[in-house]
Design a protein around this nucleic acid. Structure first.
Lengths: 189, 189
DNA sequence: CCTTTCATGTAATGGGTTACATGATTCG
DNA sequence: CGAATCATGTAACCCATTACATGAAAGG
């Protein structure tokens, strides 16, 4: 019930979102952050453990410690009522406009300098392959999700589908942009 | 002629790209970074001035100082041969895979928690408006570019068009994703 | 006269990556 | 017996944002 609950970092909210779905250890959260969420957010364990400690101190999550196999006890985290309320308030709140960082587009923005047209073509072809691979992965993810059964609002799987669908659309339009460059807008051969 | 020339930060490459197009002062570069490039990279002047000093020390750019209006001399920067070579090598090099950071998608990923469906609809509608505004700006940018005359490879304007076109496609598909959510995949009313 | 623009820096702080450190269990 | 997995932490460093600091010229 901290009045400062609003000043939670994005990673903190990501962890609250994970714990709202299912409790787990820091190690477990790191793994779950890697696998399905890596398309739009990532963090290393070195960042996760201190952040969990902060959320704990703020009363947004709680933990139960048990003797671990390693030198330190294992901490099983769960979200509190206050944490759930804080996270709920954040999801429909305004999107913080953090500046865009696309190194790829920066390279495009200097691609006119490439003296060798073949090299420019090769670069775009490589980019196309990378985005196409991402698209294929996301399509697979969507298929798996739909195969599990009907997806309805109010369930985690609904959010999963929405996020994957956004990724698919962005990946597809990026592939199409590569094709647009390769067919019409680069010197031929 | 530093052998360490490969270890230039992304911001450094952005500045080299700006200077490859046209020389200028740090202040000028900050302004040029704000206006057309802000869609895919940004930096504050407090980051730019030290970075220019580093590039200068590495011999990738050079400067001529003249007496300024303020307390310090004005430095007019220009790219060197070594700097141009370093930047050329970077543009067609591999894209460094920096992890995705989309706070917006993170929110979508927890949007299933929203107990009030109206609030979820309002959030998506707000997002749609934001992306639509960005799309409109980019379309205007493209029109202005094409109105200036034909765009051909090997010129800066070719890169400008390519970058804007990518932005347009991504913005458009994101707007379409919002519509997909609003029409079929949110509880009605 | 006040605000904006031109012009360049430093300091403090926060977010994030890489590397350092430890140690038991499980699987091949 | 060695590698991967489970499990948790700290330290050093880099990148980026915000704030602090200075001061002339131009325009309304």
């Amino acid at each position: 019930m901290d009045p400062e609950a609003a000043s939670i970092s994005t990673l903190g909210q990501a962890l609250l979102g994970l714990l709202a779905r299912q409790p787990g250890t820091g190690y477990d959260l790191a793994a779950r952050l890697r696998r399905p969420i890596a398309y739009f957010w990532t963090a290393q364990h070195s960042q996760i453990y201190p952040e969990l400690a902060r959320l704990d101190r703020a009363g947004l999550i709680r933990h139960e410690a048990s003797v671990g196999r390693g030198p330190r006890p294992v901490k099983h985290y769960d979200i509190t009522e206050a944490g759930l309320a804080c996270h709920r308030a954040w999801v429909t709140g305004p999107v913080s406009v953090r500046p865009a960082r696309s190194e790829e587009t920066l390279q495009v923005w200097s691609l006119w300098l490439s003296d060798d047209p073949d090299q420019a073509r090769a670069w775009v072809t490589m980019r196309r392959a990378a985005h196409d691979a991402r698209l294929a992965t996301l399509l697979g993810e969507r298929d798996a999700l739909l195969a599990e059964g009907p997806v309805e609002p109010g369930q985690p799987r609904w959010s999963n589908l929405a996020a994957v669908e956004l990724g698919i659309r962005v990946a597809r339009s990026t592939v199409e942009w590569c094709d647009w460059l390769l067919t019409d807008h680069l010197p031929p051969q």
